[in-house]
């Protein structure tokens, strides 16, 4: 799966689709592949304030758990409730149906500290 050009990426394998002071967050295709079959996603509550690179939840696969970090700071305005019944969406469509949460950014400038698709691909290839 090609890494979408219009997203920004963190070193922890999360992506952010930034639109003004809003952003959608998810995990990358590389991340979902290394985790394997994802069975459960634990997300923060709507209304919670989260801080860039802080741990905000976990992604569980059959035999592993890994922390979910937010690439950007802000307030959680929506979480993807559909993942409860269909966590496999993260494996199927990590940049689409597998999105995890929407943020109202508290500091849109942080976007600059994230990686471009090209930079992220280089990181993931290592």
């Amino acid at each position: 799966m090609a890494t979408p050009q219009d997203l920004r990426y963190s070193k922890e394998h999360e992506w952010a689709r930034v639109n003004g002071d809003g952003a959608v967050i998810g995990i990358t295709d590389y991340a979902q592949r290394s985790l394997g079959d994802i069975v459960y996603v634990e997300l923060p509550k709507v209304g919670e304030q989260i801080k860039q690179f802080g741990s905000i939840g976990v992604v569980e696969s059959v035999k592993a758990v890994s922390d979910l970090f937010t690439p950007l700071s802000g307030e959680v305005v929506e979480v993807n409730g559909a993942l409860d019944g269909d966590p496999a969406a993260v494996n199927r469509d990590p940049y689409g149906d597998g999105w995890m949460l929407k943020l109202k950014l508290s500091n849109p400038d942080e976007t600059k500290s994230l990686l471009s698709a090209e930079e992220y691909d280089k990181l993931a290839a290592e």
Binding site: D37, V62, K63, P87
Partner: peptide, 9 residues
């Protein structure tokens, strides 16, 4: 082989 992902999902 048993489908563990299905069991957990």
């Amino acid at each position: 082989r048993v489908d563990e992902a299905r069991a957990a999902r």
